[in-house]
């Protein structure tokens, strides 16, 4: 009886050992043969080479479509919008390039989920945008209505594309400021500048969405209105050129320490919602006055000066 019990125990141990062996072999096989995920840095680097800002073939297709719009009667009113979307893509690409120079050094990967979501959305929608224009290129006889519907498709996909950048930049902004450590390029200037990028992108997306929803089933010149989108994109383009492509303000902050950045930060913290409001209207109305509750110790004159600085800043002027 005792021998039987002993034999049963040995069998149990053998089964457990066998099970452990199977688990170990499975783990080893998974590690060796499963395709490795690309690192976020590799994934990110890819998007800096696929957009019309970087990829010559995509850019050529876009230019061809612009030419088609320009010479087809009945759709020429899209020209400004095409030009604006191209300018927007270039500006978004410049911001991505800015983050690309730093992301590899980020120590904290807790924002990778949001960042990867944004990257994948950009990559997928960029592929669709390329396909739309590649198809349009083949359709040499396309008339007004086909060109219209091509652009309506393109615009809707472009909205998804820009929203991908929105996710990416918001994640990158957090990663940049929280995981590079205390470095020269994370300061009051970088905070205000990169938060303003996020606000600009939000305002531009809101306008593109309005355009998308008002042109779902085709548009006519009489009902089409680009509104302030072109002016906002132009303002964003100046802003990116002044503070992102030219990084003087961020890199030299500790030497120049412009007090206005402290004030701009204060504006942003205190009147956060007004930053979006300001961006939403300032591009076409530089004389805008914003009413806000003054719960700081600012006098009216100080608040007015602050607003004036903020206006100059968001339009890419010297601060």
């Amino acid at each position: 009886m005792a021998e039987k019990k002993k034999g049963g125990k040995g069998k149990k141990i053998a089964i457990i050992m066998l099970a452990l062996l199977v688990v170990a072999v499975t783990v080893v096989l998974l590690v060796v043969f499963l395709p490795k995920n690309k690192s976020t840095a590799d994934n990110f680097k890819e998007i800096t080479s696929i957009t019309i800002a970087d990829n010559e073939e995509s850019k050529a297709d876009y230019v061809l479509f612009e030419e088609k719009i320009a010479k087809t009667s009945g759709v020429q009113y899209y020209s400004d919008e095409l030009s604006a979307i191209k300018s927007l893509t270039n500006s978004l690409d410049s911001v991505a390039d800015f983050y690309n120079d730093y992301y590899l050094f980020a120590q904290d990967n807790s924002f990778n989920g949001q960042i990867n979501d944004g990257i994948n959305q950009i990559k997928n929608s960029q592929k669709k945008l390329n396909d739309i224009l590649a198809a349009a290129k083949l359709d040499v006889e396309a008339g007004m209505s086909i060109i219209q519907s091509t652009w309506i498709d393109y615009r809707a996909t472009a909205a998804t594309f820009v929203k991908g950048y929105q996710k990416l930049f918001e994640g990158m902004n957090k990663a940049y400021h929280s995981s590079l450590g205390n470095v020269l390029v994370t300061n009051d200037a970088s905070r205000v500048i990169l938060n303003t990028v996020d606000a600009y992108v939000a305002v531009i997306i809101s306008d593109i969405d309005k355009l998308v929803s008002s042109n779902l089933s085709g548009s006519k010149e009489s009902t089409y209105s680009l509104g302030d989108l072109g002016a906002k994109i132009e303002g964003f383009s100046h802003f990116v050129a002044s503070y992102i492509k030219d990084q003087t303000h961020i890199q030299n902050f500790y030497y120049t320490m412009p007090e206005c950045y402290g004030q701009l930060a204060k504006f942003e913290q205190t009147f956060g919602e007004n930053l979006t409001k300001l961006l939403d209207t300032i591009s076409y109305n530089p004389e805008l006055e914003i009413s806000y509750s003054n719960n700081l110790t600012l006098t009216n004159a100080q608040a007015a000066a602050l607003l004036s600085n903020m206006k100059a800043f968001v339009l890419g002027g010297e601060v």
Partner: peptide, 20 residues
């Protein structure tokens, strides 16, 4: 104060540069 702020931030930048 400016020197301290700058040298402290430069220490952080140095870590990135050494990694590079």
């Amino acid at each position: 104060a400016q020197a301290v702020a700058y040298f402290t931030a430069l220490d952080g930048e140095r870590i990135l540069t050494r990694e590079a």
